[in-house]
Amino acid sequence: MPDFSSVRRRIFAPQARDGALRMAIWAAAGILFACAAWLMLDVAVRGAAGLDWRFLVDEPARAGRAGGIGPILVSTGLILAVAIAVAAPLGLAAAIFLAEFLPSGSRFAAWTSISLDVLAGIPSIVFGLFGNAFFSVWLGMGFSILSGGLTLACMILPLLIRTAEHGLRMVPDEWRHGAAALGMSRFSSVWRIVLPAAGPAVTAGLLLGLGRATAETAALVFTSGYVDRMPSSLLDSGRALSLHIYDLAMNVAGGDRNAYASALVLLLFLIVVNGLAMSFSDYLLRKRIAA
């Protein structure tokens, strides 16, 4: 005799499960949205209270409780400039070598790929230890903008190489063959055709690297140091914006207001940089779909 109750149960049970799953998924998405919104609004509201034009240009006073972040912005800019100036050409050269000159599947390619993956995963505090031991102590740079910038350069290098390599590999081979058939050397085909075509991807990678470097704190504590004066050279110690936030929040009683204002500056800068990076990679995607 057919047992309809069991049929019914079987139909009912998955329905309950499906409903629960649907609810869980919406709940998770809602919770993440709520937390992110809470975080952003908190920083925006409390940060905006202390943020004005003078804050951006003034020297910090009373350990940062009062005054602004002028010298800190300068130091941050210099650290980032060093990091990008070193990492961008090195990363681009390495990416061109990996994507254009090296036969895929070679042992060197495999080793490089593994070493870049591992490098990308190293905790930033270990980069800080390394930067301190190598740049600051061994090379005698001390606590300096140069040392901090070079440490960040090592840190963002894998990201730059990966994105640039990926961008180069997306360029269709027809153009390479066309260039070769015209008797162009491999380098000029890369320089004149492939690299310009991969330009948006390379730029996006560069911006992502810039964002990563700007957001970094731990790697800078023992390399570029804490000094909040206006730096006079690359060998001066200079305090990065992220480190300034940390210092105000943890070590300076009553530094909340300026910590939040600095955090808002940092966040806005990162939104611009990452937004640009995203629009570059989206542009690339659209073009690829259109082609």
């Binding site: 153009w175 058939a181 015209l182 050397s185």
Partner: peptide
């Protein structure tokens, strides 16, 4: 490169450079 300059090639799919 001189050989390829002397012996030109046209491909099945048109491949003008993105210039």
């Amino acid at each position: 490169q001189a050989l390829r300059r002397k012996v030109g090639m046209i491909f099945q799919k048109p491949n003008p450079f993105p210039l």
